[in-house]
Amino acid sequence: MVVWDEDGFQGRRHEFTAECPSVLELGFETVRSLKVLSGAWVGFEHAGFQGQQYILERGEYPSWDAWGGNTAYPAERLTSFRP
């Protein structure tokens, strides 16, 4: 999975191949867009795999509404991930 700290695949970029309990440890404040290259990941609103969670299947997510636009409580950012 590849993530960016700005919408539209802009800004700082990082690629994950294993779980990440906090993007803050990588110098990111948040993740605002992402691409899942294969498989599925779970993205969490807060560090430590806490808060609202989203199943992220293979594909592109250019902004928060692409992963959470249909929920009652959409998270505008993700800060931890698990494959």
Rank of each mutant, 00 (worst) to 15 (best):
1 M>L: 15
1 M>F: 14
1 M>G: 00
2 V>E: 10
2 V>M: 06
2 V>H: 13
2 V>W: 06
3 V>T: 05
3 V>I: 10
3 V>G: 05
3 V>D: 01
4 W>D: 01
4 W>S: 02
4 W>F: 15
4 W>R: 01
4 W>A: 01
4 W>Y: 13
4 W>K: 00
5 D>M: 06
5 D>Y: 06
6 E>S: 12
6 E>P: 00
6 E>T: 04
7 D>E: 15
7 D>L: 08
7 D>G: 06
7 D>T: 15
8 G>I: 14
9 F>E: 02
9 F>M: 03
9 F>R: 02
9 F>H: 02
10 Q>E: 06
10 Q>G: 04
11 G>S: 03
11 G>H: 00
11 G>A: 01
12 R>V: 05
12 R>H: 15
12 R>Y: 04
12 R>K: 15
13 R>L: 05
14 H>S: 12
14 H>Q: 10
14 H>Y: 13
14 H>F: 15
14 H>G: 08
15 E>K: 07
15 E>Y: 09
16 F>Q: 00
16 F>N: 02
16 F>S: 02
18 A>Q: 14
18 A>Y: 10
18 A>L: 11
18 A>T: 11
20 C>R: 00
20 C>Y: 01
20 C>L: 11
21 P>T: 14
21 P>F: 12
21 P>Q: 12
22 S>I: 02
23 V>K: 00
24 L>D: 05
24 L>S: 15
25 E>Q: 12
25 E>N: 06
25 E>T: 14
26 L>C: 15
27 G>H: 05
30 T>P: 04
31 V>G: 03
31 V>P: 03
31 V>C: 05
32 R>H: 03
33 S>E: 00
33 S>Y: 01
34 L>S: 03
35 K>E: 03
35 K>Q: 15
36 V>N: 02
36 V>H: 05
36 V>T: 02
37 L>K: 05
38 S>V: 08
38 S>Y: 04
38 S>Q: 12
39 G>T: 00
39 G>I: 00
40 A>Q: 08
40 A>G: 10
40 A>L: 11
41 W>L: 01
42 V>D: 07
42 V>T: 08
42 V>Y: 15
42 V>S: 04
42 V>P: 02
43 G>L: 11
44 F>H: 04
44 F>A: 02
45 E>D: 03
46 H>L: 12
46 H>T: 07
48 G>T: 10
50 Q>W: 05
50 Q>S: 04
52 Q>H: 09
52 Q>V: 11
52 Q>R: 13
53 Q>M: 07
53 Q>F: 12
54 Y>S: 08
55 I>M: 12
56 L>P: 00
56 L>M: 07
56 L>R: 00
57 E>M: 09
58 R>P: 13
59 G>D: 01
60 E>K: 04
60 E>R: 03
60 E>V: 07
61 Y>H: 02
62 P>N: 05
62 P>C: 10
63 S>D: 11
64 W>M: 09
64 W>N: 08
64 W>H: 07
64 W>I: 14
64 W>G: 07
64 W>P: 15
65 D>T: 12
66 A>P: 04
66 A>W: 10
67 W>R: 06
68 G>C: 08
68 G>I: 13
68 G>M: 07
68 G>T: 13
68 G>Q: 13
69 G>V: 07
69 G>Q: 09
69 G>E: 11
69 G>Y: 12
70 N>L: 08
70 N>W: 08
70 N>S: 12
70 N>E: 11
70 N>C: 14
70 N>F: 08
71 T>P: 09
71 T>M: 11
71 T>D: 13
72 A>T: 14
72 A>V: 11
72 A>F: 12
73 Y>W: 11
74 P>N: 10
74 P>F: 11
75 A>L: 14
75 A>G: 12
76 E>I: 13
77 R>Q: 14
77 R>D: 10
78 L>A: 01
78 L>R: 00
79 T>Y: 04
